[in-house]
Simulated assay, not measured.
Amino acid sequence: MNLNELIHLSIFSSDLDFDVFQFFIELIHSNLQILHVNFLKRDIRFLHADRWQKLLLENFSQLEKFSLCYREPGYGDNYPIYDGELNQFVSSFWIQRNLIFDIEIWEYRIYYFVRPFKKRWYDYSIEHSKSAQLTIKYVYCNELPNILLNQIKRVLNFTQIYHLNIEQKISTESLMQIIHLLPDLISLKISALFYYESILQFGDHEFPTTSALEHASNIKYVCLEMTFTMDDISFLISFCPRIEYLNVECIENMNIQSFLREILNKINQNHHKYLHALCIYIITADKQMVKQLKQMIDDEKLLLNYTIHRQLYNIYLKWK
């Protein structure tokens, strides 16, 4: 096989360190157009953006697509030391190629990705320098919280986190412990919430730290994939007082008109001056439903200057 003719190369390795990989890749001298690499070996140099930039610029002038996945296994106590700068993958080199830095936590493993940016659930423009997202895919429910918190602290050695996505049900207490560590959050997406009895009434009880409340006040966009009670929405609106956009699922077996009425009444009663956009996911959404909701809003004067429309199973409401 003539490596010089390669145009597409995918590498998965648990043995190569960065130096060996670099030596191999520099031998190719091909017109490579697509490069996907996935590494399991503990070598922190795989996360040095300047080395990647130099390697790609000097060897693959025709490269069109690139992605990197680097996995760190373990509990978080014996990771290799990272001595680089924060937020390395935000230079013009990466911006021009529409590549962003993302992190995922799955059980005891941390996955670091450099990959093309894809549209996310919030329909708002975000600076490339503030695109880093942490996704908590799965952690053991009975696991000590310190393991996850130490993993997040590890991630913060590499980058600030601006977007948090939690893909499993989480307690409000655990959520606040996580947000305590993340002062720069812009968006928050949660699969589902559950409560300990002592914190059902937001504002009437002590929380883990005031820092969690301060950090939550910076969050602008919130998505709750599964809504079980109105307490879920009440908590999020109170916990994130500067929320601008809320995306929720209609409670199962609850009339959509009653659901929307309760949300808007809560917003109006609490005089939320930041929240001006709402998306409700309901699988039975249709034109007639939108018409009925508009009639209810007008008749009950729930909103004055607003727009409402449907896209597939989502009903969007915006007001001034």
Rank of each mutant, 00 (worst) to 15 (best):
D43H: 06
C250M: 01
L149E: 00
S171N: 04
C279G: 02
V37K: 06
L9F: 14
W94V: 00
K65A: 08
K287F: 07
L9R: 09
K118M: 09
M176T: 06
Y82I: 05
M226A: 08
L27A: 06
I263A: 04
S91M: 05
F235S: 03
Y316D: 08
S198T: 06
E262I: 12
H128T: 03
Y124N: 08
L193D: 05
D50F: 11
N2G: 13
P80K: 04
K273S: 14
L156Y: 03
K266N: 13
I136A: 02
L164D: 03
N87Q: 04
T135K: 14
L27G: 15
H272M: 14
I308R: 01
K320D: 15
D15G: 01
P80D: 09
L293D: 07
L293S: 03
R71E: 13
S191I: 01
W106S: 10
L56T: 09
L63M: 04
L6N: 02
L27M: 10
F117R: 12
I44G: 01
E214K: 15
D204Q: 13
R109F: 01
L181P: 00
L312K: 13
N150V: 02
C141W: 07
M176K: 09
P73I: 07
L188K: 06
L188G: 08
F259G: 02
F117K: 13
D286W: 07
N165F: 11
R310M: 12
K41V: 05
S13A: 00
L275K: 05
L149M: 11
R42Y: 10
Y112F: 15
Q257S: 14
I7Y: 03
P116G: 04
I190V: 14
G84R: 07
N59V: 05
I199R: 12
